[in-house]
Design a protein around this nucleic acid. Structure first.
Length: 583
RNA sequence: CGGGACAUAGCGCAGCCUGGUCAGCGCGCCUGCCUUGGGCGCAGGAGGUCGCAGGUUCAAAUCCUGCUGUCCCGACCA
């Protein structure tokens, strides 16, 4: 492309609405423009990068036997009502009516549609397994779109679905996807990792998220530097140092007045009891029933774990009034002793402890000398939120906690959707069995954004060679010098003939403008043509990442550029050999 | 949904408190000259219903009310 007539509206200044680096650079580089909150137009540069990402995804999906479909974005309400998700999705679903008043929606995901095809068409285990996928626009009316393309209301997803006759088959399809996803991210040049994930409202038994470390991300993940254990904070487990307790002063807890002392910190100060010797008592409303949650004083409840344990997303902290009604005391003086009519869930960290301090269920009183399983009984579960520095459950190394961008998510769905929609096949024994399903998603724009987050410097984007919108940019420092222009023209023809995507900056701009734009949009290789060097028969080749110009005889430029790109690609491809299959 | 902020030319902003030569600046854009290795210089020029709708006033970008949009924090998030 000749840049003089290419639509690449770069901006010198940072638009006010952007504050994460990928958003800033994609706006400044002329990749995207915003149409509404969480709704973006992809301009030609973004479209080129996204098409390259898409091609990688297609190749890897086809490699595992995936068959590409294209499903409707507009769905009738019925299939969503059949799985219960017409209600579950709530305000996140874009809804509309057709001219006859029939309820429709814009597709947020396509379990329902693919499963309905499977229901209508698949009859026999002999037809399985199947892996079906599509690359299509998804619509989700996010409560708070943010961070440029990272959380949006309309985006492009590769979603695939596996259909197997049994769970062993699903395990295999899941592993195929896990491997394909690793290859996709590696080939896109991302430094990614997979984490064990919480399945959320998708249901299902096992789930992994694919993450790219970035402070612009919204997910907190836990990772072990020692053994590679990695999990979403919502699911992560850890070991903690044991606590040695002293014996209580007497067999029964002692009640003490604690006027105005509510928080763990206040009690620590007032009674001189360390937080780890206190029991934090929370009241949650779980499926509209009050439930007592007990944590060690210095630990935080992990709501996702509570959700997974109770099997419902319908949970929330009780209100102040609900707490008084259930416990007879204000929050700040709550405890488990004497509680008979509420379920009590305790974190594992309280098991075996003695001589703890907690609320007395009388406002402004606490009790000391409380021993779990003696003075109250509870069901123990892992409910604690891992914190940075906790020990790895597998190898005891110190765990790190950091933010990441979720670039993909895979789920073992099981039979949730096939049961709901009646998708079944006859097995080998002639019995009708529900199809066992998996569902697998990748957000294309998130890959683009994550790549920009991960690959940039103070001048702009440094695209991985495999997903860059162009391979090489030719920059003659002047369009007035006919020798420069002739040589640039010649490079343009030769490089295109060599199969490269070439951007030719033939604008009558000053060199600084051209260099800055080339750096900003992140094209991996630049050829610079200047008068003095050309008089010696030389041009310069600069790899964007290295920012160091190398002189090159004019006749060797095409070969040099081709070799530089091949080296960049080879470096990325080499990472494929690091992929470890899912255990 | 709770909290906070913003909305003036394509982009970034000032002006608003204290109403009246306040429609202004920088960048970008157009024309000409000049310059040509990291966003050059000079001269001239185009471009804005000051988010929308009401209200107060002789007079509103400026004060008041309502609405809409956008961003940030939190909640939420297959």
């Amino acid at each position: 492309m000749r840049l003089s007539h290419y639509f690449m509206p770069t901006l010198r200044e940072v638009p006010a609405e952007a504050d994460v680096v990928s958003h800033i650079l994609l706006l400044r580089g002329g990749f995207v423009r915003q149409l509404a909150a969480g709704v973006y137009s992809h301009l030609p540069l973004a479209q080129r990068a996204l098409l390259r990402i898409r091609q990688i995804i297609r190749e890897e999906m086809n490699r595992i036997g995936g068959q590409e479909f294209h499903l409707p974005a507009i769905h009738p309400a019925e299939i969503w009502q059949a799985t219960g998700r017409w209600e579950v999705m709530g305000d996140n679903m874009f809804r509309l009516k057709d001219r006859w008043g029939r309820d429709m929606c814009l597709g947020m995901t396509h379990e329902e549609v693919f499963t309905s095809i499977a229901r209508n068409e698949l009859r026999s285990y002999r037809q399985l397994p199947q892996i079906w996928y599509q690359i299509q626009t998804k619509f989700r009316d996010e409560p708070r779109p943010k961070s440029g393309l990272l959380r949006v209301r309309e985006f492009t997803m590769k979603d695939s679905y596996s259909f197997d006759v049994d769970w062993d088959g699903l395990d295999k399809s899941y592993r195929l996807h896990y491997d394909a996803y690793c290859r996709i991210y590696a080939r896109c040049g991302l430094d990614y990792f997979a984490v064990e994930a919480h399945s959320g409202s998708m249901g299902g038994s096992q789930s992994h998220e694919f993450m790219v470390r970035s402070d612009a991300g919204e997910d907190l993940v836990v990772r072990c530097p020692g053994c590679g254990y990695a999990a979403n904070l919502e699911k992560a487990a850890s070991r903690i140092a044991p606590v040695t307790d002293t014996d209580p002063a007497g067999p029964e807890p002692v009640r003490v007045a604690t006027p105005g002392q509510k928080t763990i910190e206040e009690i620590t100060q007032f009674l001189g009891v360390p937080a780890q010797n206190q029991i934090k008592t929370l009241v949650y409303v779980v499926d509209s029933k009050p439930t007592l949650i007990l944590m060690r004083g210095d630990h935080q409840l992990n709501e996702a774990k509570l959700e997974a344990l109770t099997g419902t997303a319908l949970l929330r902290p009780a209100t102040a009034d609900e707490i008084v009604a259930a416990m007879g005391a204000d929050a700040g003086s709550l405890g488990p002793v004497g509680v008979k009519n509420l379920p009590i869930l305790a974190d594992e960290a309280l098991r075996g402890r003695r001589n703890m301090t907690t609320g007395a269920n009388a406002t402004d009183f606490h009790i000391q000398g409380v021993t779990p399983d003696v003075h109250f009984s509870a069901a123990y579960h892992d409910l604690r939120t891992v914190v940075d520095g906790d020990r790895c459950p597998a190898c005891d190394s110190a765990l790190g906690v950091f933010k990441s961008i979720e670039v993909g998510h895979i789920f073992k769905l099981g039979t949730k959707y096939s049961d709901a929609l009646g998708a079944s096949v006859l097995n080998r024994d002639g019995q009708s069995v529900p199809i066992v399903m998996g569902s697998y998603g990748i957000g294309e724009e998130r890959i683009l954004s994550a790549a920009v987050e991960q690959c940039h410097d103070d001048k702009g984007i440094i695209f991985p060679a495999t997903i860059a919108p162009f391979d090489v940019i030719i920059v003659p420092v002047s369009m007035e010098d006919s020798r420069l222009v002739e040589t640039a023209d010649r490079f343009y023809e030769e490089l295109r003939a060599a199969g490269l995507e070439v951007l030719y900056d033939d604008r009558p701009e000053r060199p600084g403008v051209k260099f800055n734009d080339a750096d900003l949009v992140g094209i991996p290789v630049r050829i610079t043509l200047g008068t003095k060097k050309l008089a010696q028969g030389l041009a310069e080749v600069t790899v964007r990442r290295e920012a160091r110009a190398v002189d090159c005889p004019v006749d060797e430029v095409t070969g040099r550029v081709t070799a530089a790109l091949a080296a960049l690609r080879a470096e990325i491809e080499a990472r494929l050999s690091d992929i470890r299959p899912l255990q």
